[in-house]
């Protein structure tokens, strides 16, 4: 678990673990799994909110719950940078972690695959594999996207690759 900052770690341990090992093609068991995912997400969101650390909104884009869309944001220099977030639950889920995509930032940073999929740290995959099936979407967000945002957004802002929406608006207006 080394490689993550203590905050992340403590938060991670507080997120409820999942028990059902089922993928999207497993029918009822998947449903069961999906319920656990929700419970986990609810707990994580509640935790974030109580810590004044709310940083994403997601919802299932299809009834099966294999595709998820939403938004995520990061505050840098008192400015809130907000990005679209989308990902699919892979068929081999939960053995394979979902690939989180930030389509807005596609082509703006090295730490990203084509299509806006973020590059996770080397530590993520072994950890995920070790904790299968106990980790779920909430864990993936916590361990994957949150550190990535914290690391990348300041660089992107400083390098001018991304601009705050107010600035964009001002720029367009002018």
């Amino acid at each position: 678990m080394e490689g993550w900052d203590p905050n992340t770690k403590s938060t991670l341990t507080k997120i409820p673990l999942l028990t059902t090992k089922a993928g999207p093609r497993d029918g009822a068991v998947w449903t069961q799994r999906l319920k656990e995912e929700y419970k986990s997400l609810i707990a994580y969101t509640g935790m974030n909110k109580s810590n004044d650390n709310d940083w994403f909104r997601i919802s299932a884009a299809n009834p099966e719950g294999t595709r998820w869309t939403g938004k995520c944001w990061y505050v840098h220099n008192l400015l809130k940078y907000e990005f679209d977030l989308q990902f699919d639950i892979p068929v081999t889920y939960p053995a394979t972690a979902p690939e989180l995509e930030l389509p807005e930032l596609d082509g703006k940073t090295h730490k990203m695959y084509r299509g806006g999929k973020i590059c996770l740290t080397v530590h993520f995959k072994p950890l995920w594999a070790k904790n299968c099936p106990r980790f779920g979407i909430a864990h993936a967000l916590c361990l994957g996207l949150a550190p990535w945002l914290a690391a990348e957004v300041p660089i992107l802002v400083d390098s001018g690759m991304i601009k705050h929406k107010d600035d964009k608006a001002a720029a367009t207006a002018s």
């Binding site: 449903t31 969101t45 109580s50 004044d52």
Partner: peptide, 19 residues
């Protein structure tokens, strides 16, 4: 599941405490 979905929605909509 629907219930959970709704709960999740609510949780996300809930105002986060200011710290």
């Amino acid at each position: 599941l629907v219930e959970l979905q709704r709960q999740f929605e609510l949780a996300q909509e809930a105002k986060s405490s200011v710290r």
